[in-house]
Design a protein around this nucleic acid. Structure first.
Lengths: 246, 246
DNA sequence: CGAGGGGTTGACGCCGATCAAAGCTGGTGG
DNA sequence: CCACCAGCTTTGATCGGCGTCAACCCCTCG
């Protein structure tokens, strides 16, 4: 819970250029799926493409930049900073997700701060563009709603699996969630930093460290190469998490 | 966390009749605000009006009834049942909120079970009606999005305030949240049952009971009449919750 | 080489889970 | 009217998990 304020989030991002959504080869996975190719011919404000380095901030809570962000690759954490500087990670979103949607309701600004976990490949979409497209193509409404529902489902999962029960089970649930993000056929995952894990499951760094170290010792988590990629024995982990839930 | 399965949720609801949304005097507070009075003249499926008694179930997780529900009065809890029968309350929604919106995305059914906490005055709206109105009145899209965002904001608050820190602070946050539901000018609230509170803050009944009893002894929570209405010293409670966050 | 950040480990104490039992309240039937 | 019961709340005793403080290891970088 308690952790001193520390990171000075730098705007450590790289601009890759203006984007032509009509020709985006992964558009069918993104917010603008379902729109015709020519829908973007008259958009007034440009969609820009960035790569955010790890720990770079996409936006800050309560800011009112007129953008939403569509994640192409990488992970983005949404976090809440307590007045005392401790932080709680409220969600982690991956490829295909859209963050900052609260801006569509106007007014109050972003609900959280958004920070890249791994290097994140992201499209920055101006609000005006979304609104214009939305009025012309009502099916975009549906897309937006589904993205919001995705956030909601994930938040609920967070509450149920990561906010309940003994710490070990929560950490294991987190590992399993991370392995779901992986496009990798095996269950290889890149372990988060202990501090992030602690801010996710709501415990301390030490507790997380002990649990992870223990899982490693029991070979339920094995370093797979020289990178910090780990393979987790999903079956065994699920079994442990399940028996602890009781 | 652990609590045996028990309640056989009965369909203890009372049908009050078919509703004419065009003449609903609180429509400006509800999902259909922003639609013209005559929008409802040709709706095919009827909107029905119910009063659900405490503990009556509006719908069950993963069911696929083609309805969403708009809450006029009272509180509704959304809960997740673990396989072992223990339950976790994921959200509490009050007047003006809409529940069951996940059905709009088709397919997977309700995400949670919805159960009336206090007696709940509720309109049951057929999906077909929503969809028909939505295609004719795009502004309804906006309304739906705002309701979803409301769910999301509440879920995030849940994670941050009720899923983090020592139990005492979490319970106090819950009390303060409940006092926000109250339309009452003072901070009078109807205390939830201990079991519900426990399922909300993720502790045991005993722990909640001890905390509440202690707050009563310290006069931060006072029975206000003969009913189980309590007045809470919001300032003092906020102070305690604040100091514990650090 | 030292400094610093992240991870791991140990010792200790407290919060809260667990088990158990005793009030309290409202409802039901004699 | 009282006895009785079921459900809810409160309280106590005990014990384990996890927070806290502190040290140490490992690696990278200046």
């Amino acid at each position: 819970m308690s952790k001193a304020l520390k990171k000075a989030y730098c705007a450590d991002k790289e601009w890759l250029g203006r984007v032509d959504c009509g020709n985006c080869h992964i558009r069918h996975l993104m917010l603008f799926s379902g729109l015709p190719d020519n829908a973007f011919e008259n958009t007034l404000a440009p969609v820009d493409h960035f790569i955010f380095q790890p720990n770079a901030m996409l936006y800050e809570a309560s800011a009112t930049d007129p953008y939403i962000y569509s994640i192409r690759r990488g992970l983005v954490k949404l976090l809440h900073m307590a007045p005392d500087g401790s932080q709680r990670i409220v969600r982690i979103m991956g490829p295909g997700a859209t963050v900052g949607l609260a801006m569509l309701d106007g007014g109050d600004g972003y609900r959280h701060s958004a920070v890249a976990v791994s290097a994140a490949d992201v499209c920055r979409i101006p609000l005006t563009t979304v609104k214009a497209l939305q009025s012309e193509y009502p099916q975009l409404c549906q897309q937006v709603r589904e993205r919001l529902q995705e956030h909601l489902d994930r938040a609920d999962e967070w509450i149920i699996a990561l906010g309940t029960g003994p710490a070990r089970g929560r950490v294991i649930h987190l590992l399993l969630m991370m392995s779901n993000f992986s496009t990798d056929p095996n269950d290889d995952i890149e372990l988060l930093k202990r501090e992030d894990m602690a801010a996710i499951v709501g415990t301390t760094v030490e507790t997380v460290s002990r649990i992870i170290a223990d899982l490693k010792r029991r070979q339920l988590l094995r370093k797979v190469t020289e990178t910090n990629l780990y393979r987790c024995d999903a079956e065994a982990l699920r079994a442990i998490a399940g028996e602890e839930a009781g």
